[in-house]
Amino acid sequence: MDVVFYLSGAVAIVSTLMVITRSNAVHALLYLIVSLFAVALIFFALGAPFAAALEVIIYAGAIMVLFIFVIMMLNLGIQTQTQEREWLNPKAWIGPAILSAALVCELIYALTLHKGAVFAAVEVTPKAVGIALFGPYLLGVELASLLLLAGLVGTYHLGRRDERSAAREGDAP
């Protein structure tokens, strides 16, 4: 599992770099999906197959499909691609590169301090995840569901059919 962990970690980093540097939106999204797969594999290697499956189903299988859907609808042409390329000129890289380098240094320092076991010896089964979610973390789950409900109601409100304007346009059923 050591090899799987480091290999998928490397894939995740490389593909995420590709996400940032692609000028074609769909290509960038595809690299993001690959990066999500790599993260799912990392979860799997660490003994959390349930989290890995959810990562693929929810992030790669649902949220990213919606992103792709929107990009397909917009049908961005060559114009936006050249525009993106202009934004990605070398000057724009200097600031973020310095900041990220500082973060990398911190990370390496932190890693050298803690030389503990990286891999969990136990496998987290779906049942264990459920018990944890609806036991000690019940409040968090409920709060998240409230947030989602608010989002749902908001979307419904924004997308509702306005009776008056529909009648004015003359397309009322």
């Binding site: 769909v26 595809l30 197959p49 499956a53 693929v56 189903i57 790669a60 499909v65 397909m72 779906p126």
Partner: peptide
């Protein structure tokens, strides 16, 4: 032990094939 979820995950990835093929 997540067999069913694995199937659901794979079927949700099948969407990419037709969507990207069309695009």
């Amino acid at each position: 032990n997540i067999g069913l979820l694995f199937v659901l995950a794979m079927s949700s990835l099948g969407v990419y094939s037709v969507a990207l093929g069309g695009w």
